[in-house]
Computed example of a mutant assay.
Amino acid sequence: MTVLVLGVLALAVGGCVCVVWAERGGPRWVCAVADVTLAAGELLRVVRRSRRRSLKRSDSGQD
């Protein structure tokens, strides 16, 4: 379990480094990794919003 958490952490930190590097004009592969990182972040935001909305709906329906 620890190895899995460390692997996810390493991917997240590496993605953030690539985003900063791509902003400064890095190579093509860095820009691709940065795009994937930003898309994954946006996907997580959308999922989190939809979960919050569904929780609010289920809470309000019980009154």
Score class of each variant (00 low, 15 high):
44 L>W: 10
63 D>L: 12
46 V>L: 13
14 G>Q: 03
4 L>D: 14
13 V>M: 03
18 C>P: 00
15 G>M: 01
36 V>Y: 04
23 E>P: 00
36 V>T: 12
60 S>E: 15
39 A>C: 11
43 L>P: 00
22 A>Q: 04
38 L>E: 10
24 R>I: 07
55 L>T: 05
4 L>I: 13
37 T>W: 09
10 A>G: 06
53 R>Y: 08
41 G>F: 08
43 L>N: 01
25 G>F: 02
7 G>C: 09
56 K>H: 04
13 V>A: 13
58 S>M: 14
4 L>K: 13
7 G>Y: 05
21 W>D: 15
57 R>F: 09
14 G>S: 05
61 G>W: 05
54 S>G: 00
38 L>F: 01
55 L>G: 04
21 W>K: 13
36 V>H: 01
60 S>N: 02
22 A>L: 02
56 K>N: 04
61 G>M: 10
8 V>G: 02
38 L>I: 14
3 V>I: 13
29 W>R: 08
42 E>D: 09
30 V>C: 15
24 R>H: 14
15 G>Q: 05
28 R>H: 03
32 A>V: 15
49 R>L: 15
56 K>W: 08
16 C>Q: 08
46 V>A: 10
39 A>M: 11
46 V>D: 06
27 P>M: 04
57 R>H: 10
50 S>E: 14
2 T>W: 01
52 R>P: 00
28 R>A: 13
12 A>D: 04
20 V>A: 11
44 L>F: 12
5 V>H: 03
19 V>Y: 04
61 G>S: 15
56 K>P: 00
15 G>S: 05
56 K>E: 15
11 L>Q: 03
29 W>M: 08
36 V>D: 04
38 L>W: 02
25 G>Q: 02
36 V>P: 00
63 D>A: 09
40 A>C: 09
44 L>K: 04
14 G>L: 06
47 V>M: 10
2 T>G: 14
62 Q>S: 14
51 R>S: 08
21 W>E: 14
9 L>M: 11
32 A>F: 09
33 V>D: 00
58 S>I: 12
43 L>K: 01
45 R>H: 05
6 L>C: 03
53 R>P: 00
43 L>E: 11
10 A>Y: 08
20 V>K: 06
42 E>C: 09
43 L>M: 07
10 A>V: 11
43 L>S: 07
47 V>R: 03
4 L>T: 13
3 V>P: 01
41 G>T: 03
40 A>M: 06
49 R>T: 08
53 R>D: 08
42 E>N: 07
63 D>P: 10
48 R>V: 11
5 V>D: 06
5 V>S: 10
7 G>A: 12
6 L>R: 13
30 V>Q: 02
45 R>Y: 04
6 L>I: 05
36 V>E: 06
53 R>K: 07
57 R>S: 07
16 C>W: 11
4 L>Q: 14
27 P>T: 05
43 L>V: 12
54 S>V: 03
35 D>L: 13
57 R>W: 12
7 G>N: 11
31 C>G: 11
48 R>I: 02
10 A>R: 09
56 K>T: 06
27 P>V: 02
51 R>I: 15
37 T>C: 12
21 W>L: 15
47 V>T: 12
42 E>H: 08
39 A>V: 10
60 S>L: 06
42 E>W: 11
40 A>Q: 03
13 V>G: 02
28 R>L: 12
3 V>K: 13
50 S>T: 12
37 T>Q: 02
21 W>P: 00
1 M>Q: 13
